[in-house]
Structures are given as C-alpha cells and as structure tokens.
Simulated scan of single mutants.
Amino acid sequence: MTRINSYLKENFINFLLLVGTVLFTLLLIEVGHSIYKLIRSSKSYFRIDQTTQERYLIPGMVREKKFIKNGPKITIRINSLGWRDREISLEKKEDTFRIVALGDSITFGWGVELHETYVKQLETILKKQNSYKNYEVINISIEDLGLQEELKLLKQFGLDFQPDLVLLGFYLNDARPIGGFPNESKPTWFHRRYTLRKIVNLTPLTKSMAKKALIKLGIMTPNASSRFRWIDTFTTREWVTNQDKMKLLIKSADLDWGVAWKSQSWTAINQYIQEMQEVTQSADCSLAVICFPVSVQVESDFTFLDKPQQHLSEICSSKSIPFLNLLPSFRHWNTTVEEPLFFDLCHPTPLAHQKTAQVISKFLDTERLLLTPR
C-alpha cells in the first residue's frame, strides 16, 4: 500500500508539473502576443476612443502598410491637422473653391497611395480644367466610419475648412452605428486572449463547446453574430449566377454591407443625410452624395441588387441633393477593361479611383456645383 501511495503521489506531482509547464508556456505565448500587439498598435496611424468607440487619425504619423497580400507597401501620411492629406491651412485663400471629401475607407484610400485616391485625382482634374481658379479637394475620411461618425466629423472639423461643397462618399454599410449593431458580437476578454482562441478554434466541436460555455457564463450574447460571416459564402462565388445564393449572401452580410437591403436601415440613413444637409446649409455650402457599389452588384445584374441605390436616390431627390450613382459606371467598366476594379469586396483599385474621379468631375460640372466660391 505504501508503494502504491508513493507511486500515486509521484505521478500526481509529475502531473502537476506537466500542467504547470503547459500553463506557463501558454502564459509566455500570451505575454509575447500582447507585446507584439502593443508594438503593432504603436505603429498604427489611428486610435479608437475606448469610451465612445470613435476613430481618429493621429496627427503627424507616417506609416507604411501592406494592405494587399503580396502587394506593395502603401505610405500613410497623416498631416498636422489629423487627416490623410497634404498640409493644409484652415484659412481659405481668396478665389479658392474648397471641396471637403467625407467618407470611409474607400474615400480614405484603402490600398492606394494618396495621389491615386479619387479625391486627389479629382483635385488634379479640376485644376487642369480651370486654371483661372484654385481648387482644393480636402480628404477628411477615416476607415470604417458610418454616417453617424461622418456627421460628427463634419460638425467638429469639416466646417473649419470653410468648404464650398461637401462631397459625401456613401457606401452600403453606412447605416452601421458607432461600435456596431446591438446584435453584433463584440470582443470580450476571452476574444482578446490569443492562446484561448487558438485552442478553442482547433475543431468545430471545441468551438461549439466554447460558445455554449461563454453564453452560459454571460460572456457572449446568445444571438450575437459576426459582422463578417458573409466571407465564406462570398468566396464560393456561386452568387454570380445563382439568385438564391445571392440573396443568401446579402442576408449573411446584414451586419455589414447587406444592411442596405433592410428597409429599417433607411430610416437612420434618411435622418443622418437630413441632418448633414441642415449642417451644410447653415454653413452656406452645398452637399452632394456619391454612392459606391459593392463588387457583387458590379459582377451580377439581378434587378433587386439595385435597391440600395434606388433608396438613396429617392432620399436625395426628396431633399434636392445632387446624387451620383456609380453602379452603372462600374458595371460598364467591368465589361470594357481587363484590369480589376476592386482589391476585395469594396475597395477600388487605382484604375477605379482614376475613372471615378473623371465621372465625379463631369457630375459636378453637370450639376453646376463648381460655381463662384463663397
């Protein structure tokens, strides 16, 4: 009996040592990953207010970032005022027509150099066409913004530039509120633990067990869904010719760009655009809306795909706001050019930025939005 007890005691100690070693190793991995994240965040060109979840660019920050796998490094340079643009004075010179471009990652220039963005290319076009007048197109866009945040930026900073025109670059997920939708899964202490996530994601069974445990412990909301759960359906590309698959894809994206097919989202969009118009009118400047498509709308032509643009057109028309729908142009380019128009689901390539700037230039001229500066 003594020998058995001694054997059990020895093996129990070995077991504890093994468990301790594993836990210590996991702790080292977690600490190492935390240090890595800290180093990465110190190189970021934007910050997120942890209280409000609002995003801001960091003035004076210069970073190189590879947006596309195997793609070139892109220089992100934030000026002293906190925008991805050249150094600009708030004071507007005489005979200068100023356009403030407001939007999300598309207008910000995700994946392209500053001079390749449609904002800067539009500025170049306007200067060449009107050498007798000075045109400035100022970019005050930030990645992953919605209309709610864009309206705040316009009020807090945009009007300081004394714009003659505010050009809103609208994208289909712009109804998304600050911090995400109520039923959108949010990062918790568990999701921030690198080692725990790696362990539970080993198999579908461990993922399912972990989810049930987190819900039971109150860490995760039962009906919470991932914002990007549409990616798997998107990569199959069955939606290109299959209408049912397309509808399934849109439904799976209802916490992102698919929200544009939900009628209730247009109540919020209408409200924000109404308020944006009131803000610009009080500042004695014009407002125009440019709507960027999602790539699935460009690659397919099912009639229901145009509904978001139709909704936005009706809203702008009811308020006499000039509106440019880029979907027809993108569909035309998709059949006439060999180069890709998108890096991914939504971000335009340099070619698409160039063509977009040309279309916007004609639109501004047709709508007579480039008259005498105020």
Rank of each mutant, 00 (worst) to 15 (best):
S317Q: 14
D85N: 11
G103C: 04
T117A: 02
T267V: 14
E299C: 03
I315C: 08
Q277A: 06
N223E: 14
S361P: 08
D95P: 01
F46C: 00
Y132K: 15
R229E: 15
Y194F: 15
R63L: 00
Q50S: 14
G158E: 05
P328G: 10
D49T: 06
R374M: 05
Q310D: 13
L196R: 02
E314M: 09
A224S: 15
I99Q: 01
T366F: 04
L205W: 12
M1Q: 09
I58W: 03
H353I: 03
N139D: 11
H115F: 07
T51G: 00
F190Q: 03
I140L: 06
N5P: 00
H311C: 08
L81M: 10
D254M: 02
L255V: 06
K92P: 02
Y56H: 09
F228C: 01
S226V: 01
M246Y: 11
S89V: 02
V119T: 07
N14I: 03
P350G: 01
H332N: 13
R40T: 11
V19K: 09
L287N: 04
L168T: 02
G71D: 12
V119W: 01
E30G: 10
K362Q: 13
F12I: 06
F342E: 03
K66W: 05
L167K: 00
T356Y: 07
I290H: 04
Y135I: 01
A260V: 03
D306G: 11
Y194K: 07
M61I: 06
Y45V: 06
E339H: 04
L327W: 05
K247C: 02
R237A: 12
P222L: 08
R86P: 00
I35S: 09
T195Y: 02
A352H: 04
P72I: 05
C346Q: 11
T107D: 01
G258P: 12
L147E: 02
I35N: 08
P373N: 09
I142V: 15
E143T: 09
S361E: 11
P177A: 08
V337H: 11
I178P: 07
K9R: 12
E113R: 13
E123K: 09
M220S: 09
I138V: 14
Q162L: 09
P340A: 06
N139T: 09
I142R: 02
F363K: 03
L370M: 07
Q271A: 12
T21K: 09
L145H: 04
K133Q: 14
T356N: 04
K9P: 00
L17R: 15
D284F: 10
I273H: 03
R197A: 01
T233C: 03
E275W: 01
F97R: 02
F234P: 03
K128I: 05
K152Y: 06
W266E: 01
D49A: 06
K133L: 13
L27E: 05
F302K: 11
K73W: 10
L122Y: 04
I290T: 01
Y7S: 08
L324D: 06
H33E: 15
I76V: 15
R193V: 12
R77M: 07
D144Y: 12
K362R: 13
L172T: 06
Y7T: 11
